[in-house]
Design a binder for these strands. Sequence first.
DNA 1: GATATAAAATACCAAGTGGTATAAAATATG
DNA 2: CATATTTTATACCACTTGGTATTTTATATC
Lengths: 185, 185
Amino acid sequence: MSAEKVLDVAMTAYWHGDPADVSLNEICQLAGVSKPSVYREFGSEDGLMRSALDSYAGAVLSDVFAILQGGKGLQETLDALIDFASTDPRMETGCLFYKMRAGKHRLGPQTRSRVDEFDAVGQSAYAAFLQARREAGDWPSGLPVAEGAKYLGEQFALAITQRASGEDPGRIRQMLTLALSVFIR
Amino acid sequence: MSAEKVLDVAMTAYWHGDPADVSLNEICQLAGVSKPSVYREFGSEDGLMRSALDSYAGAVLSDVFAILQGGKGLQETLDALIDFASTDPRMETGCLFYKMRAGKHRLGPQTRSRVDEFDAVGQSAYAAFLQARREAGDWPSGLPVAEGAKYLGEQFALAITQRASGEDPGRIRQMLTLALSVFIR
DNA sequence: GATATAAAATACCAAGTGGTATAAAATATG
DNA sequence: CATATTTTATACCACTTGGTATTTTATATC
């Protein structure tokens, strides 16, 4: 029993390691729960992964959305994103969502479609942020909002992915700052 | 027998798919060769992978080095890199080297150290290129050469990785051009 | 042509995967 | 206290993985 604990263990294991390399047996052992219990609660490994991703979204991704929807200025918001990507201790082992997205072909159907959903939601959030900044006269560049949103999301993901591979946070901050400087010129 | 053919089949399979998802059995079947033959020739799966990577380096990576060492100007060379990443048909399924680097923890020791070697060699090539352009007065920005080299390599890798995930080549060109615009301003 | 030798293919091994049927234990109900 | 029911845990299934031992086949050599 204790689906809450299983979910927490699974989320952490998938997040800390590589989602595709963490086996169900391993999670059961870590959580002190039998395999049939997990199957009765989550239906399949895919179901558990999907739930773990949902759990992660509520715990971590929500913070990123909060930054984007904070209504702050362009420079201030980009700085907050740079801070989050390069120095937030939770990103020390990378982002579960980005890890899953990078290995999407290995995911089950439920988890994969959740990844696609979050991807779309993220894209919209970036676009809404840039649109608001443009309307506020804060971002006069001629780059279309959709293109800017894609670029911003990609660079953010790149920085956090490098975080997962042990890159030096200072270096990551430098690189991301350089990449996002195209918004401020 | 026919180690050449096995190597070719392995390189293509690893390259087209995901190196970690292509099993030795699969390669043997594709190449029409028995598993013991592969082991007699390459010693282990790790040995085969390492050889496949070497083969790939000679066939593809060499072209990138050629672009960097062509002695052309900054803009012209960056354009050539952008062309290669966004439109070269060989990059349609991504780059074997980048795929291996992204999943480095799944590789055997031989392959992994080869990946590290190529990574260092690539870094030096980027740095040598930028150093030459700076000395030629072609790149007056205050960014240190080492930082610029890292940034250039990362952006190039990002573009090709996106190529592998089916992203639109035009969009990729746009994003990479934007990212590399920091060199020209 | 008979024999020694090298090569290749089949069959096998232990380990691990996701998933499940069955037996054991604990809980609730009479 | 005894019985019925639900939850849990053990044991198992079929399959795939990398890696080998063994047998068969082909190739030289005499």
